[in-house]
Design a protein around this nucleic acid. Structure first.
Lengths: 230, 230
DNA sequence: TTAAAACTGTAACAAAAGTTACGAAAAGAG
DNA sequence: CTCTTTTCGTAACTTTTGTTACAGTTTTAA
């Protein structure tokens, strides 16, 4: 019954490190529900009770937050193999924190949360791994959020730029950086306005800290930029 | 052996909803380690491998982050019954994200993470609840962090105050709020300076949006405050 | 190739938030 | 109770950031 989706499931974080054979039997034990949605249909509604985690088997979803004036703000896109609702499903207040909409025709697998945490009656072999995965996923999420907070907690625009450039430097292992965002996106990411960002970058260029042209940035004085980190 | 600590353990989030008798047998199954620390001693060091979650049985701990100039910044205080390291213990990168120091003479119980996730051989009765608790704790943490990000992503102080007050209003289900922070802590939480926060709150008082005295705040015009939410 | 659209830096000005300092009120200690 | 310490609001002033507008450049699409 679920065999069609086995190759998708194998690649998910949730079922990582679980051999295909074990997975096959475990899926039944989790009693998931596969639902189909047409483009534009609502998969989950903000504030409604959440019954379990969602796993996108096929298609595309968007997660959006309702805002007060009736419009909504797209927060994130979900692609095949991605999980959603994993945080809210196990939290105290079991409601969807956002609205999920099918952006294309989609197939979604819902797994009841109590089935994940519940010791299954047949004691299926991979269940321990599953729990480990679930805890790892949620913990990683928390750690990532914590990192983002460090980013946002920074006072000045210069500090934000410095933090961002040094993170890129560590990642790209070079002082000549190619940023994969344009100024607007970068400004959004750092939570500042574009002209303010451009201005500050220009100041830093004047001071000989960096050089840049559009999306390529060259770090000229790493030490001095580092002093802005803390 | 662990009976001395049973009353503390009963009150922790980790062992919530587990009857005392079940807890007594389960504790052995978790094979925890109780360590004693003198005031000033290091309980855990930032960057070192984390072997399990910590549970403070008695005393006081401080969690601090090393900063570049050799000093350190106190992030949080841990009191009797509190848990720490629960996020890092289950995350991909299993290292302490901060340094933990005994602020007073303290007793700490460490529980190996694999004992929590591992199905215990004797199949002790409360283990399912324990896992539920653990997932709930970590998920709640993630949700709280997410909430904090929403505060930090907001541009103006007035929006931050409004968001915060409305969150408190929903939680306390009353327009007369008692905040469990002083101004300094609130300013830190919202990532602004105290005088700026006070000033903005005074403006809001002048405009008839709120009234306040120290840690008690009364929401006078919920609708108008709500318009700042977006 | 060429016209339209999108991206980027810059500048003048406005608004918001930070800094510093101080006195009054509240809380805590003896 | 009195003295000390902490918390808090306020105000003058400075700094930073946002706003708006515009022109040059680059990219896109016909």
């Amino acid at each position: 019954m679920y065999e069609v989706w086995m190759d998708v499931l194998m690649k998910t974080e949730l079922f990582k490190n679980i051999p295909e054979n074990d997975l096959k039997s475990m899926v039944y034990c989790l009693s998931p529900m596969v639902k189909e949605y047409r483009k534009g249909e609502l998969v989950a509604i903000e504030g409604h009770k959440i019954k379990g985690i969602g796993l996108l088997l096929k298609g595309n979803l968007t997660i959006s937050k309702d805002v007060i004036d009736g419009t909504s703000l797209i927060m994130k896109k979900i692609e095949s193999g991605d999980m959603f609702g994993e945080i809210a499903a196990f939290a105290e207040k079991e409601v969807w924190p956002a609205t999920v909409t099918a952006h294309q025709d989609s197939h979604v697998m819902f797994i009841p949360s109590e089935r994940i945490v519940g010791l299954c009656p047949t004691g299926c072999i991979g269940h321990k791994t599953l729990l480990n995965n679930m805890l790892r996923i949620v913990s990683n999420k928390a750690i990532n959020l914590n990192e983002k907070i460090e980013y946002l907690s920074v006072r000045s625009i210069r500090e934000k730029i410095s933090k961002y450039l040094i993170a890129q430097y560590k990642q790209q292992k070079s002082t000549t950086l190619f940023l994969n965002m344009n100024r607007n996106e970068m400004a959004d990411f750092l939570n500042v306005t574009r002209p303010s960002l451009s201005r500050e970058m220009s100041y830093m260029k004047e001071e000989g800290l960096i050089d840049f042209h559009r999306s390529s940035v060259k770090i000229l004085n790493l030490e001095r930029i580092s002093t802005y980190l803390n």
